[in-house]
C-alpha cells in the first residue's frame, strides 16, 4: 500500500515543519510541507491529503498572541474547507503553535495562555496517554510518552475540564511536573470525534532512540513520540 499523503501547514514563522514532516515520514506517511499563504489560495490541496498537520513555531512571531494571525488567515480564507476536512474523520494534529492555531480556529476547545512562570521553557517531559480518551492518535498507547516542550504560551485553559474528561477529550496529561500551569495537567486535547489532536509538547522530536536524553543508558525506546504518528498515519491509511 502506498504511504498516505499528509499535508504539513507552515505559516510565516513556523519552524518545526521539517521535524514534523520527518516524524510523519518515519511513521509511514508521504508528507508535503505547504506554506499557509499557498494553501489559502489553493484549498484543493486539502482534497488529496489524508492527514493534516499544523506544525509548531512562531507563526507571525507570536505577534498579538500565539497562533492568532495564522488562525485568522486560515479561518477567513479556508475555514469551511478545514471544517469539512475534520468532519470527514481524517486525522488532524496541531503541535505547539499548531495547537494554538487549532484552538483559535475553534477546531479544538479551550485556549493557551502564557506559561504560569511567565517564561519560554525548553525541557523534556513525560506524558500520560489517557485511556478514556476518544483520541485516535493516542489509542492503545499504554506507556508514557517522553518528549521535549519548547514554548512560552502553553498554559491550557478550559472552563470545565471535568466535562472535557467526561467527553473523552483529554488525550494527554503531564505525568512529570506540570511545566506551564495547564488546568488539570492537560498537555493535549482532542475534538469530540477524536480525530483532531492538539498538544503543546513535541513528540516529533523523539522519533529515533538516539534523541532520548538517556539513550546512552539504554532508556527511552518504550516511550517514543513516534507512536502517536504511527497511530495517526494508520488511521489515515484506512481513509
Amino acid at each position: 500500500m502506498s504511504p498516505p499523503p499528509a499535508l504539513v501547514i507552515a505559516g510565516p514563522g513556523t519552524n518545526r515543519d521539517r521535524d514534523l514532516a520527518l516524524a510523519l515520514e518515519l511513521a509511514g506517511a508521504d508528507p508535503t510541507i505547504v506554506m499557509s499563504t499557498e494553501l489559502v489560495d489553493h484549498p484543493e490541496l486539502l482534497d488529496d491529503a489524508k492527514l493534516l498537520a499544523v506544525a509548531g513555531g512562531f507563526s507571525y512571531g507570536d505577534a498579538l498572541g500565539a497562533g492568532r494571525l495564522l488562525a485568522l488567515d486560515l479561518n477567513v480564507r479556508i475555514g469551511d474547507a478545514l471544517r469539512e476536512f475534520v468532519a470527514s474523520g481524517r486525522p488532524v494534529i496541531g503541535i505547539c503553535n499548531g495547537f494554538q492555531v487549532l484552538t483559535r480556529t475553534k477546531l479544538l476547545p479551550g485556549a493557551l495562555g502564557h506559561n504560569a512562570h511567565g517564561r519560554f521553557e525548553c525541557r523534556w517531559v513525560v506524558l500520560e496517554p489517557q485511556p478514556r480518551s476518544r483520541c485516535l492518535w493516542t489509542k492503545g498507547i499504554e506507556q508514557p510518552i517522553h518528549c521535549p516542550i519548547a514554548h512560552g504560551e502553553g498554559r491550557y485553559v478550559h472552563p470545565d475540564p471535568d466535562a472535557l474528561a467526561e467527553a473523552g477529550q483529554i488525550a494527554l496529561t503531564y505525568r512529570s511536573t506540570n511545566p506551564n500551569g495547564s488546568v488539570a495537567d492537560i498537555a493535549g486535547v482532542c475534538n469530540a470525534a477524536g480525530n483532531v489532536l492538539g498538544l503543546m509538547p513535541h513528540p516529533e522530536n523523539f522519533v529515533v532512540g538516539r534523541q532520548h536524553p538517556h539513550a546512552r543508558q539504554g532508556s527511552g525506546l518504550d516511550h517514543l513520540g513516534l507512536r502517536l504518528f504511527q497511530n495517526g498515519v494508520a488511521a489515515a491509511a484506512e481513509m
Binding site: 521535524d19 520527518l22 519560554f120 525548553c122 519548547a150 536524553p213
Partner: peptide
Amino acid sequence: IHRYDHEILGATAVRPLVGALA
C-alpha cells in the same frame, strides 16, 4: 539553557545539560 530551544531540528544528540536529572 532552559530559555533556549535546544531540541528543535531533533539533531541534538548530546545536550548542554546531561545526567539522570538533566
